[in-house]
Design a protein around this nucleic acid. Structure first.
Lengths: 352, 352
DNA sequence: TTGTAAGCGTTATCAC
DNA sequence: GTGATAACGCTTACAA
């Protein structure tokens, strides 16, 4: 019953609910109530401590009944560490990053790890964030953004924070990362070849974008191997619809039969330039291909051929890394998640 | 230099950076170092305490120099309250809610208030969250979602948490809220009347959605006042593109000259059904109007006529409320932010 | 105005 | 395996 904006009228609260404002039970109080020492209560709640299974079960049961839950703030202070994880974002306009944040935050909650959100504006200083990380005793930081500088990441790591990078990597650094295999764009070249297209172009994101560069590189290499012609190439200032639109208009001067875009958003900008606003037929006049397989890609009126970016698996990888770090096992690891080509309706043989 | 995914190579860290792993300075250490008492340091950092301006300035200056920052965890424990604010979300697929989260989190950071993200899945229990709010000593919760039940909100409030609702309200409850004026949909009726359209229809969100209901109501009332004909009405299970697509197909049976949708996303689904996939002309065959004025609404190939939803001002309102609450001033307040009609290219006279 | 000292609710180090 | 007791780094009476 939690769908829609309005899940019913205000419901009268029972007596126990009303008492909520009373301060929460402390370990000491629970201990006194059930006749054990306060440290026993503490031990019952932390794993890897020496309590008899019987006592632990008893304490946990009573705690449940009386509504006791350890105060994490006190625990953080005492342990000089917190289970809060910093989640750093900067690209709320990117559907892929939003999807990652969505799934990641849900998964974290299931594990009782809570994300403190650091939404960095362009130009925010890494140092400022570092101070906050320290203030909160935050040990682990997950970066879901391509816009945070390597420098910032390096500083956090140098300060002893564990960093997990999503969708990017710092090659020779001992920093965990989980990302999709951008070289899958080579599959696009194969596909275009198979349907008989020879003149191809690439429309990318910002020049400084590693993601765009990797996707371009793998595509261009395979294009060359197959003996196809790379007739055009455009980059943008950003990963926006307008960028894809403008890039497409520009690259059409080279008369390509197909265009690969660094992301679906750019590709949809291209579809707009060509078809919605341009009066051309896709794929009749030109084929287009995206990368990421965002929700929009399968809208009835879009049906974009694209490379699948497996966000759920990337999130799984990040969660796995997170747990390894929190359990103190192993060092940083690099995950690379494969994606595959999804052929829809924006690619096909050229019109006769 | 923080645009693009890759902001340069790893930079060698200076000596002071490398030492970062050394534990942060405490108030006691700073106090000893600069020759004041620890409580003086504490006072210098909290406003409304009795310290001479001179001492405060001195302490703050030295703290800055030596890199001291109060540990907020200890502060939370001592104050039995935390400046962490819970931000509750559930609709990561809604551009408007994402935009709110984006802007809100940035504004909060500027104020040194940090958002702990609670991303609730459909069906998540309010009680579970409440336990976590207590564990973190969280006093204030901002709800950016229509899908969290009134019941949950009421329970948090009954437990003594301050709640700020964004984009919704619980009418007779003493709970703060900031939302857009959904009755602005009446402006749509006026606009359609002026361009000579008489048969209109409405495509809404889930039946349980208060937002959809309010937008529909104001529209329908004005339509009646103007003597226009409401010839059709469809609701969906959700606020998705597909819902808008399907709802449009259904409502076209009543041959409307114009359709108002509860949101832009639904309207774009409608545009897809009519134009991209349907071969009809918009606005030649039928005019369509959305609500929210999301980014997509102004894409070259969309140019959707819509009602502006002023997210920045709504966020301003929420921040204002937040500060009032944190300063202990005043009780809950209700803000209503006006929007206006944005006429673009999807409305116009019917084809001759 | 400033310093001293007693919490805040945990964890961790001791003995037993 | 369990119970006292000392941190953890702050805030806040209470004294000076």
């Amino acid at each position: 019953m939690t769908t829609g904006d309005d899940a019913g009228p205000i419901i009268q609260l029972g007596a126990s609910e009303r008492l909520g404002a009373r301060p929460a039970l402390t370990a000491r109080e629970l201990a006194d109530l059930i006749g054990v020492s306060q440290s026993t209560v503490s031990r019952a709640f932390s794993k890897g401590t020496s309590v008899s299974p019987k006592t632990r079960a008893f304490v946990l049961e009573q705690a449940e009944k009386l509504g006791y839950r350890p105060n994490v703030i006190a625990s953080f202070l005492s342990r000089r560490a917190s289970s809060i994880v910093g989640v750093v974002t900067a690209d709320f306009t990117s559907p892929v990053y939003i999807d990652m944040l969505d799934r990641l935050s849900v998964r974290m909650q299931e594990l009782d790890i809570h994300p403190l959100l650091f939404n960095l504006q362009a130009g925010a200083e890494a140092g400022d964030q570092l101070a906050v990380l320290r203030q909160y005793n935050i040990e682990t930081v997950i970066v879901i953004s391509g816009r945070i500088s390597h420098m910032s990441v390096a500083r956090w790591a140098a300060d002893g924070r564990k960093v997990i990078l999503m969708n990017r990597d710092i090659p020779d650094a001992a920093i965990g990362s989980v990302r999709c295999d951008n070289s899958a764009s080579s599959l696009v070249a194969d596909h275009l070849w198979e349907i008989g297209l020879r003149r191809v172009a690439f429309v990318g994101g910002p020049e400084s974008s590693a993601v765009s560069a990797e996707r371009e590189q793998a595509f261009v290499r395979r294009v060359a191997e197959l003996g196809m012609i790379l007739c055009g190439r455009e980059g943008g200032r950003e990963y926006s619809h307008q960028s894809g639109f403008d890039g497409t208009r520009a690259v059409m001067a080279s008369r390509p039969e197909a265009i690969l875009y660094a992301t679906d958003r750019l590709a949809i900008g291209g579809l707009d330039a060509l078809s919605w606003s341009g009066g051309l037929s896709v794929p009749g006049d030109v084929s287009i291909v995206g990368f990421d397989n965002i929700d929009m890609a399968c809208w009835p009126g879009i049906q974009l051929t694209t490379v699948h970016h497996d966000v759920p698996r990337i999130v799984d990888g990040a969660i796995e890394l997170l747990q390894q770090i929190q359990n103190g096992r192993e060092g940083p690891r690099k995950h690379l998640v494969k994606g595959g080509l999804v052929v829809r309706a924006t690619t096909g043989p050229a019109k006769a």
